[in-house]
């Protein structure tokens, strides 16, 4: 093995600008976190709605929920990103299409967030559905018998318990979204995977130096997210109720 170490590379400036590689990686981390969090907001809100729809007693609503999940779950995330980035603009009306292709600000970022958010929403929806279905049928009846409407029964009875039960799987879905955010490199978002690849190229093969910092940052972020969800889980713990793991 003839690997030339150069740990000083972090403090060299990148060819295309006046920041150091280390600063560039930190910016990459910023984009990674931004994509993951924005996508997670979309995934959690849409996933909750879709998962709830799947348990609705109304056949049509349940079917819409089911179609949503199958649609967004069965195509790889990288390809879904390409579909949003390259294909969808072609399907838009001419003027809008031109605007998206030429003038849309932060197009790469927004497309990545949308693709990752929708992809993850299908998986969140499956967890929400499982959570609701794990509650006894009697709970729904008890809510209805009190005079709650269907919506109120979900709002006050079913969803609060369902979400407590699914905190552990939701945590891992969030981690997946965080890790999947790396695909955004493929449409040119300067997140950590993109920066790592560029850095390997521009430094002429300082592979270890280029990859180690982003890798460690990924590990730290995963660990932090795990801790945070643990805190949320303890905070929302229901006395006398054993949450199934």
């Amino acid at each position: 093995m003839n690997y030339q170490w150069n740990w000083g590379v972090f403090f060299e400036t990148i060819p295309s600008g006046d920041v150091t590689y280390l600063t560039w990686i930190i910016h990459g981390l910023g984009w990674t976190v931004a994509i993951s969090l924005c996508a997670w907001i979309i995934a959690l809100s849409l996933g909750s709605i879709v998962g709830t729809l799947r348990t609705a007693q109304h056949r049509g609503l349940a079917l819409i929920g089911h179609a949503w999940v199958e649609f967004f779950r069965n195509v790889p995330i990288l390809l879904q990103l390409f579909l949003w980035f390259f294909v969808v603009p072609e399907l838009l009306p001419h003027d809008l299409s031109m605007w998206v292709k030429q003038d849309m600000p932060a197009k790469e970022f927004i497309t990545s967030v949308l693709a990752l958010g929708l992809f993850t929403s299908a998986r969140v929806a499956e967890q929400v559905r499982a959570g609701i279905q794990s509650l006894s049928r009697g709970q729904r009846n008890a809510g209805l018998a009190l005079g709650f409407t269907q919506t109120q029964t979900y709002r006050y009875v079913l969803l609060p318990m369902a979400f407590r039960i699914i905190i552990p799987p939701l945590t891992s879905e969030f981690m997946n979204a965080f890790k999947n955010s790396g695909v955004a490199y493929a449409v040119g978002v300067w997140e950590m995977v993109f920066v790592s690849r560029q850095m390997v190229e521009e430094t002429g093969g300082q592979v270890i130096e280029s990859l180690i910092v982003p890798t460690v940052l990924y590990i730290i972020c995963s660990y932090a997210a795990n801790l945070l969800m643990g805190v949320i889980e303890r905070r929302s713990h229901v006395p006398g109720f054993i949450v199934a793991k």
């Binding site: 093995m1 995977v193 890798t215």
Partner: peptide, 22 residues
Amino acid sequence: DLMRSVPLLMMILWFFLLAPFF
């Protein structure tokens, strides 16, 4: 734990870029 906290994409790059040294 290590494999589970690092994105697959990063691992693919690690191996592909380091292997040529060996």
